[in-house]
């Protein structure tokens, strides 16, 4: 690796690292919101895009457990989907 590339990478680390945690948290909050959207119909909130979000449900299932724990729910709020 040339010294220029090395310097660039070091500088980038210097820029990015102090805020990694803040970004990860922001990303997680965004995904939680998205999870709400996907599950909204099942939670009783009418969702005009449910046709599209229903397809995503299988994708989201494995993130379900962490999500409901984060929302302060000990058990999954969905009757048909129990993860724990």
């Amino acid at each position: 690796m040339s010294w220029f590339k090395k310097a660039e990478r070091g500088l980038r680390d210097f820029y990015v690292a102090p805020y990694r945690r803040v970004f990860a948290r922001a990303k997680r909050d965004e995904e939680d919101l998205f999870m709400m959207l996907v599950l909204s119909e099942a939670l009783g909130v009418p969702n005009p895009a449910s046709g599209a979000t229903l397809e995503l449900l299988p994708e989201m299932l494995d993130r379900m457990h962490d999500w409901h724990i984060r929302q302060g729910l000990d058990r999954s709020p969905m009757d048909g989907m129990q993860c724990c």
Partner: peptide, 20 residues
């Protein structure tokens, strides 16, 4: 985990630590 726990080059880490 790529977020909080990331092994970092010691000079870069010193730079962060010092400027913080």
């Amino acid at each position: 985990d790529g977020v909080d726990f990331v092994p970092t080059n010691r000079y870069i880490l010193w730079g962060h630590h010092f400027t913080s």
